[in-house]
Computed example of a mutant assay.
Amino acid sequence: MVRLLPRVLPKGLPEIAKVRIPGVTLPMSRLVIGCDNRDTPAEGAVVWDAWMEAGGNAFDTAFVYGGGKHEAVLGQWIASRGVEDKIVVIAKGAHSPYCTPRAIGAQLEISLGRLGLDRVPIYIMHRDNPDVPVGEFVDAVNRLIEAGTVGIWGGSNWEVSRLAEAQDYAAQKGLVGPAILNNNLSLAVMEKPVWAGCISSNEPGTLGFLRERQVVHLSWSSQARGYFLPEELRNRLPEDTRPETCFGSDRNAERRRRAEELARERGVSANAVALAWVLAQPFPSLALVGPRSPGEIASSLPALKVELSPEEVAWLNLETGDRARGAA
């Protein structure tokens, strides 16, 4: 039986839609909540109960978050609410400097223990290590798939050339290749890496690859760390990772101006338009968000009402000069 707290979100908000991802048993919400900021089960319950109330059932965590504390807190909430068979947990491991084939299985065993789960439907390598032949990573993850502890898998902050190489290797060997890319993808292009080793997917080659192979993309910092918020709200983060520090540029300022223009027409915020842009990509696109309160969940949901045409998607990203005609 699912045990959640009483309803806390305002009525009338759109519900988070769910999609089918090949290899994942449950339909999963197109918005995924990041679980890297809740230090106690009580703190987690307030947000995660509200997340499920909003229709969200996808949770993103990682071996390194909070030195392991955040996986354990999520696991306690899962057990207390009895939702282990109703949610999709995305587990990440093998972060640098422990990005080795040997670390994958060892870390996953620890993560499963913290989470109180027997398996995770989605496993993502948190980083790539180009010094290791990609086939060794494919082999290591496939041993976990064969053992039944992993469903599908992918890579975070991977170059698409390596992802393609891993897919091709798996196809040749009759193995399961990576099906998910977990890079930054936001309407604002990342100009300075938020953290060392981070990669943006908002560049023509990567977007073309995702369209061609229809790779599932799970974007982190999908709203560019608040770059599209009103000016007075943008600088609440540490200076070295503030939105203007990591995303500030003339071209991004124009993207924001266009998002604000469209937002006024649609009666939503520019932040909602930016999130809608991620969801409107011509490949399976999921957006990772990091609300710290039910109120922040509620503020993201209006994006789900914004339907963008392909011409508007291109116009917002400065690929065209006229959204009405789609003309350059």
Rank of each mutant, 00 (worst) to 15 (best):
W48L: 15
G56P: 10
W48D: 04
V47D: 04
S29A: 08
P27F: 08
V64K: 01
D49E: 12
D36Y: 08
V32F: 06
A45K: 11
A42K: 14
A50K: 07
Y65C: 03
P41F: 12
V47F: 04
V46L: 15
M28L: 12
W48G: 00
M28S: 07
L26H: 02
G44V: 04
G44D: 08
M28W: 01
D36T: 05
A62E: 02
V46T: 12
G23R: 02
E43I: 01
A62S: 13
P41W: 14
S29Q: 06
G55P: 08
V46G: 00
D36P: 01
D49V: 03
D49M: 11
G44Y: 09
E53T: 03
P27L: 07
T40I: 11
I33D: 06
S29E: 06
A42P: 01
A45Y: 07
A54W: 05
V24F: 01
A50H: 12
A62W: 00
R30F: 04
D36K: 03
D36S: 15
D36M: 12
M52T: 06
G44T: 05
P41Y: 14
E53H: 12
P41K: 11
Y65E: 01
G56T: 10
G55C: 08
F59S: 05
G55W: 09
T61F: 02
A54D: 12
I33Q: 09
I33L: 15
S29F: 09
E43H: 10
W48T: 02
W48H: 13
R38P: 00
G23I: 00
A42S: 10
V64L: 08
C35R: 05
E53N: 11
V64Y: 03
A50V: 02
V46F: 06
Y65M: 03
N37P: 03
N57D: 09
R38H: 15
R38L: 14
G56C: 08
T40S: 14
R38N: 11
V64C: 05
A62V: 03
T40F: 13
D49F: 11
F59P: 05
N57M: 07
I33C: 05
G56R: 11
A50W: 08
V32C: 13
D39N: 12
W48F: 15
D36C: 08
R38F: 15
T25F: 00
D36I: 00
V32H: 10
D36E: 09
D39V: 05
L31C: 04
N57R: 04
P27N: 04
T61L: 08
G34L: 02
A58K: 07
G55V: 05
V64S: 09
D39S: 12
E53F: 06
I33R: 10
G34V: 00
P27I: 13
A42W: 13
G23L: 02
G44H: 09
M52R: 15
M52Q: 14
